[in-house]
Simulated assay, not measured.
Amino acid sequence: MFSSPLARANQHLSLFGFLKVPMIGWCRPKILAIDDQHVQMRIPLGRRTKNHLNSMYFGALAVGADVAGGFLAMAMAEQHGIKISLAFKAVTADFHKRPEDDVIFTCLDGQKIQAMIRETIETGERVNQPVTIVATCPTLHGDEPMATFDLTLSLKQIS
């Protein structure tokens, strides 16, 4: 049976969370959309992800930002048929409102990440660029940002 690219991406994310980064698996993220330009994923608000104020815990928000920025880079590297070393070197975050429902994380930096991958392939060097992830609660606040994350994505092609 053939599964859709979105279903395969979610299977890959679940396996990665289970085997490599259990905190990702604990938060149960789900990819809603992914293409060459963007990724959009959701972390549900529930017992695992909420804080004492019944909003999404800071740590769960950080996991969502990490997955949104990192998964897009991993998927693009896979499309190029290369393996990459991926890390985040810095993070800044602005918290605008308390996210009191499921949170959608969106990264629209696909073109920037594509350029980073091309550069690391060409130079063999590590490439660092900031990527932006916006967290929203569409069910309560539409497209109004709950938080904005700037993460410095660091990529290097590995053999």
Rank of each mutant, 00 (worst) to 15 (best):
V67R: 08
M56H: 02
D36C: 10
M1A: 08
M56W: 02
E78Y: 05
I43G: 04
E100F: 01
Y57G: 02
N54P: 00
D94Q: 14
L53S: 02
M74Y: 11
E78H: 08
N10E: 01
K83A: 13
I34S: 09
L86H: 05
K83L: 09
G69C: 11
L45M: 00
I31W: 05
D101E: 07
A9D: 13
R98T: 03
A93I: 07
L15Q: 12
F2D: 15
S4N: 05
Q40L: 07
P22C: 06
R8P: 06
H96T: 10
H12Q: 14
L45I: 02
E78C: 04
G25A: 12
V39N: 06
A62G: 14
Q37L: 07
Q37M: 09
H38I: 03
E100T: 06
A7N: 13
G69E: 04
I82K: 02
K20A: 08
P44Q: 02
A60S: 11
F18D: 07
S85R: 11
V63I: 15
A62D: 08
F58P: 01
D102E: 02
P29N: 10
S55M: 03
D35F: 12
D66P: 00
P5G: 12
V21N: 10
G70H: 04
H96I: 14
D102R: 01
V91C: 13
K89F: 07
G25Y: 09
M74A: 14
Q79C: 11
M23T: 15
R42P: 08
G64A: 05
R48C: 03
G70Y: 06
D66G: 11
A75L: 08
K50A: 00
G46P: 02
S14V: 14
K20C: 06
R98Q: 14
A93W: 02
R28T: 09
V21R: 13
M76P: 05
I24G: 03
Q40S: 13
L45E: 02
M1R: 15
G69R: 11
L72F: 08
E100H: 06
V63G: 01
R28A: 12
A65G: 15
A75I: 06
P5H: 07
P44T: 04
D94N: 13
N54G: 02
